[in-house]
Every structure is written in C-alpha cells, then in structure tokens.
Simulated assay, not measured.
Amino acid sequence: MSAQIWVLGGTGRSGRAIAEQLAQRGLPAVLVGRDANRLHTAAEQSAAETLLAPSLAAAASEIRRQRPGVVINTVGPFTETAPAVVDACRDVRCHYIDLANDVAALSAVFDMHDAATRVGHTLVTGAGFGVTATESVVVKLCEGRPAPLRVRVDMVPSLAMEEGTVGEALIGTLLGGLEGHRITEGRLTRAQMFGDAVRLTLPDGSQVTTASMPLGELLAAQRASGARHVLSASSEAPSSFVIRAMMPAVSTLMRSERLRSFTVRRLARVRVKARERSRDHSWGHATIIWADGETREGWLRLGDAQEYTGAVPAEIAKRLLAGEGSPGAYTPAALFGSALAESCGGEYLLPRPVRR
C-alpha cells in the first residue's frame, strides 16, 4: 500500500489543519484542490506536496490512477462528495476518512460497510470534533457495562475563527441538522428541534446551555452504546422560543433538493470576520443511564475544536497506514476506542457514578 495521504480540499481551514497535524506526525500530506495559487500557499505551511484537480470527478480519477494509501475528504456537502470519493477508494483499496457531521452523511457511509468489508478497506466518517469528542466519552463510560437504556451527548465547541467564507462543508452540516430527530426505542424518530434545553455547569465552573441538534453525534452515540434512547445536543443550537417556532417551516423548505443545494452554495460564500475563541476549552459530554438505575456522566476536555478536527483524521490516517484498522465503515472511537481522543490531546474527566 502507498504511504501517501491525500487531503481533498487541502486549501480550506480543515485541510490545512490536517496537513499541519500530519507533518507533526512525520507524515507529509498531498494537498488536493482546484486553485494552484492557494495550493502553493497552503503547502508552504506544512511542507506538503500538491495535486491540482479542477473538479471532484478529476480528483476521483487521480485516486484511481495514483492509488494513495489514505484519502481524507474535507469537501462538503458530504452526502454529495462521499459516494464518488469512496467509490474511487474502493476501486484501489484505499482507506477513506471524512469530516461529515450530519445524520444523512454518516448513514450513507455506514451503508457502504459491507462493500468495504468485501474489498478490505476502511471507511471512517465523522472524524471531526463533534462526533469524536462525544462518542469517545460514551465509549469510555460504557467500558465493561452492558448496553444502557438512555444516552444524552452534548458538544460544546470553542474555536477561533479566521476571516473568510463559511464553506460548503459547514453549511451542509448545519442544514443537515435542521430536521429534528432522536433515537427512540432503537429507531430514528422525529423530534422537536432545539428542544430539551439543559443548563450545564462545565468542569471549569462556567455554564452553558445546550439544546437538541441531531447531527452525526446522534448516530455515533447510538452505535457506540447500543442504547434504546439517544439525544444529541449542542451549545451551538439556538434556544430562543422564536427560533424554535420557525424551525418546522424552515425544515420543510430544506427537503427540496434543489432549494437545499441552492441554499448551500449561497450561504457557503458568506464571509465571516476573524474572532478569538469564546472559552479556553472545548468539551464533549455524555450522561448515560442504565436499566438498573446506574447513571454515569463524563467529560472530554480539549483545546481549540478546529485544531482537534485536524488532529483526529491525522491520527487515524497514521494508524490506518500502520495496519491498525479493520475493513468496513466506522466512526473514530468505535474503531479505535476511547484512547484515540487522548492521543489527539483530549483529557477525560469522569465523576463517580451514582445510582438512582
């Protein structure tokens, strides 16, 4: 297998963060993108190589021709980009990693599990902050225990913003979370969007409100725990009554594929101003309840959420090249266990379990 690690969307913020983390691990990246000047500038930051690909189809063709060892996909919306990239990776038995974080995108990769198993390559989806931080806490808390009854996960990101456009990956993820869902009796069911608000006291003593936002963490937590009831929440979810009242109408409009694609393209070009991160740490949190009444709560403390989103796929790529993966489709902690988060800079804080 080739030792090359390709980063699709290598000029974006996530792509550059991944390249830097790969360089720190002694694994230079090949940055793949559409703009030669931006590729050159990005590559200078991490001593990476570059590959100009004017379209996703061109990138897929190059994967088949050059046969890299691992491809990391940072290009959204992942429901559109993942199938074509995974198909190319399957043809040459190349491992695949992406940063998807919405229910539809993760589900699409999970549906490719059997095909990946047959050819012997590994697919890892959700390799960013939200899925990895919360799923890792769930895996840690469930070690040595049977499947729980209920799980709630909360992601509390803190990241500095650089000036520039928002990008299709982020917009696709956010729009993918506009339709309320939860896991009920083991099945994905509709639920109130931005409901179930909880005021959390973080381990550092500060407080934050999280509300339901069914992104990729929902599926990852359910698959990692086997729980019959799962809710995912985020501090990024609006909690005002007015916003919650508007969401059913917005969600209905977003079911139109044409309108959705148009909205993603337009919003992806919106420019944001640079700002410092809002708090010192980012947090993944989980509360788990078993049928016997035992309740466990845990936290994963991290630094900047964007830096973590660079570290996770870089660490996974390193392990896949070392032959540590398994054929099929996985989320990060489901494949590599709770220690993966620690190898990427996370620290677990686990209060004593209680019985109710």
Score class of each variant (00 low, 15 high):
179 E>W: 13
173 T>R: 00
246 M>S: 11
144 G>S: 02
267 L>R: 09
106 L>D: 00
82 A>K: 05
198 V>F: 00
283 W>H: 09
92 V>P: 04
169 A>G: 09
93 R>F: 09
116 A>M: 08
1 M>Q: 08
204 D>R: 02
66 Q>G: 03
139 V>K: 11
197 A>W: 05
280 D>E: 15
18 I>L: 04
104 A>K: 05
246 M>Y: 08
269 R>L: 09
198 V>A: 13
63 I>P: 00
82 A>D: 15
170 L>R: 06
36 A>L: 13
133 A>P: 04
174 L>M: 14
223 R>L: 11
266 R>L: 10
250 V>R: 06
277 R>H: 11
93 R>T: 13
165 T>E: 15
54 P>V: 02
46 S>G: 05
283 W>M: 11
180 G>Q: 02
309 T>Y: 14
149 L>Q: 10
92 V>F: 01
175 L>M: 10
255 R>G: 09
302 L>V: 05
168 E>Q: 15
338 S>Q: 08
1 M>E: 11
275 R>M: 12
231 L>C: 13
50 T>S: 07
274 A>L: 08
342 E>I: 05
125 T>G: 12
301 R>F: 00
45 Q>G: 04
147 A>H: 08
120 G>D: 07
260 R>F: 03
32 V>A: 11
299 W>S: 00
253 L>D: 03
342 E>Q: 09
104 A>M: 06
253 L>N: 08
253 L>G: 03
282 S>D: 07
26 G>A: 06
148 P>D: 02
240 S>Y: 03
38 R>K: 13
21 Q>G: 09
141 L>V: 10
220 A>L: 11
168 E>K: 14
351 P>I: 00
54 P>N: 13
100 A>Q: 12
183 I>N: 11
280 D>T: 15
9 G>E: 00
255 R>I: 00
14 S>E: 00
349 L>D: 00
79 T>L: 00
255 R>C: 04
311 A>I: 02
85 V>K: 04
186 G>P: 04
245 A>S: 14
174 L>Y: 09
184 T>R: 15
192 Q>A: 15
147 A>F: 04
282 S>R: 12
286 A>S: 05
106 L>M: 14
348 Y>P: 00
291 A>E: 12
99 L>C: 10
172 G>Y: 08
171 I>P: 02
267 L>A: 12
3 A>H: 15
216 G>H: 13
191 A>I: 01
120 G>N: 13
86 V>D: 05
294 E>H: 13
235 S>I: 03
86 V>K: 03
344 C>R: 07
244 R>F: 07
108 A>D: 05
294 E>F: 09
212 S>P: 01
307 E>T: 10
